[in-house]
Design a protein around this nucleic acid. Sequence first.
DNA 1: CGAAACGTTGAATGGTTTCAACAAGAGTGG
DNA 2: CCACTCTTGTTGAAACCATTCAACGTTTCG
Lengths: 244, 244
Amino acid sequence: MHVIERNPLALKLSAFAVLSDAELAVLDGLHRKRRSFQAGRDLVHEGQTERAAYILVSGWVCSYKLQPDGGRQIINFQIPGDFLGLRSIMMQASDCSFEAIVDIQAIEVPKQSLVEAFSTTPKLATAILRAASRDEAMVVEHLVRLGRRDAGKRMAHFLLELGARLSLVDLGNQSGYDCPLTQYHLADALGLSAVHVNRVLRSLREAGLVSFKDGRVKFINRTGLVRLADFDPAYLDQTRPLAA
Amino acid sequence: MHVIERNPLALKLSAFAVLSDAELAVLDGLHRKRRSFQAGRDLVHEGQTERAAYILVSGWVCSYKLQPDGGRQIINFQIPGDFLGLRSIMMQASDCSFEAIVDIQAIEVPKQSLVEAFSTTPKLATAILRAASRDEAMVVEHLVRLGRRDAGKRMAHFLLELGARLSLVDLGNQSGYDCPLTQYHLADALGLSAVHVNRVLRSLREAGLVSFKDGRVKFINRTGLVRLADFDPAYLDQTRPLAA
DNA sequence: CGAAACGTTGAATGGTTTCAACAAGAGTGG
DNA sequence: CCACTCTTGTTGAAACCATTCAACGTTTCG
């Protein structure tokens, strides 16, 4: 059993604040229902008025928005340990959809319980806000990728970011990681056509930097890739919580 | 005196939660210092470890990230009544810089006071989280703009979004708004070159949709512009707070 | 008056998309 | 078991959108 599966919410928030036993007990009361979703299914649809967020326990999810012309923009990918739909429950209606990329398991966190827990456990509110800030920082970096980098750098930077995130939860390391995404997912995330994604992956492979094949990302020359992408993981805020 | 200048923080958060007199009193204690910054000055620099956020009282600010090659991507613009640097204080270090576009006034909200207020006033935490979620929703929509729309639609959508936001604080209406941005700002925000911004603005003007001239945005045919941009302001979450 | 910031326009270049075609593997039903 | 379809991956050529380079006009300001 993967480490995240034991107490996902507590583990997630422990990264952002030192929590007491009492506070951890409150957290235990929060996650009641464990739910499963099949690959390809939508967990939440844009415009839906959500009453619960989730912590992803296993599998991959993506959040996306559809365009009237049929195009799709993927906002972010959620991997085990990530919050999912936190923004959706704080707004009138969800501003994007969530799709399970593979079969997944997730813990349901009802909005009502979460808000109520804020009053008994104020430190929890700070931890949630920190977690939300870190997620937003990833979206911001993604925005910069789309606005100011060419296809090669976008891809390189994206693959490195995923690697860094997965390493944090022991699903990857310096040499690579398993990745269930198709080239269409990459295209929808990076604002490219699937055809061009294919070409970019080929050029990165031929440059001896990274390979994307059979559901596995392999870093061949990680240093070179980092240099190409100007990858600096500072925005991922991957630090232990400050005791103060 | 513009309505926002009286009690900026309370006004902002009242949009996201119904606050009692006691809670409003706590808010009054939060904003002590009012600060001014000159046009062109940075309020916060990327990598800085911030100890305070701000509420913008007057003027315009933008948040941005610089690239190693000298390029700049503007993340968002802050207008009167907006939070500024909320994410920066929740992370180890600020993930982006903030620049005053014109001379501005802002209220300083110390991180420590904000976090402490969460324990005495739990509803405040919820309101802040909602405000942060709305800001994130704007960044998400911006991301979709960059990833999946051509220059014309990007510009049209962006000008409409700004109009909707400014109308909320009485700084704009259906016919247009004053706008201190240069074409370079637009280029840095929309991921375009300044030259192309100029061409796009011309084509929108010649199509009889909108004009951008002498610091003023004028909607000529707002309906047509909305149709071109597929603009749907739902993500701005512009609703009164739910009493419950 | 000169410099600097901003705006404007044309022409050449280039990154990316679109169109089209084909290959390989997985799943399905006859 | 084989044909069939669907999904995913792959590659070439043409078309297109946006960038870059270059030049010039306008306004502001010291």
